[in-house]
């Protein structure tokens, strides 16, 4: 039976939210679009944090609420903890604007 304490908001999402502390090595069952999916946990995931529902390649869109919440900054395994160490935002990126500017100057 699907774990009620692992929440997938929209069927298009590739991450879920843990509503309990999950441990690496656990096999968890989540409900995605009314179908059960079994995932081997790669990492510990604390209450409130996210786990990947499927493998993601670097640069791939991370989807929650059916919408992009950023891009994977590295390859992510199913069952891996998904957070600031492996996801990048696409808003408020003054650091990138600066990089683009210095690239333009170099060119």
């Amino acid at each position: 039976m699907a774990d009620q304490l692992i929440e997938v908001v929209e069927s298009a999402d590739n991450v879920a939210t843990a509503l309990r502390d999950i441990e690496a090595g656990e096999t968890v069952t989540v409900l995605v679009d009314e179908a059960e999916r079994t995932i081997e946990m790669h990492d510990d995931v604390e209450f409130g944090h996210k786990l990947a529902l499927e493998p993601l390649s670097a640069g791939e869109t991370v989807t929650k609420y059916g919408t992009s919440i950023g891009d994977a900054s590295t390859a992510i395994e199913a069952g891996e903890w998904v957070h600031v160490h492996n996801v990048e935002s696409n808003y408020g990126r003054g650091d990138l604007a600066d990089q683009n500017q210095s690239q333009a100057v170099q060119e």
């Binding site: 604390e46 209450f47 409130g48 929650k64 950023g70 998904v82 957070h83 600031v84 996801v87 696409n90």
Partner: peptide, 14 residues
């Protein structure tokens, strides 16, 4: 971020 929010997009959608 301690509470699990990763990016401003995720915070906003919530």
């Amino acid at each position: 971020m301690d509470g699990g929010l990763t990016t401003i997009e995720e915070k906003s959608l919530g």
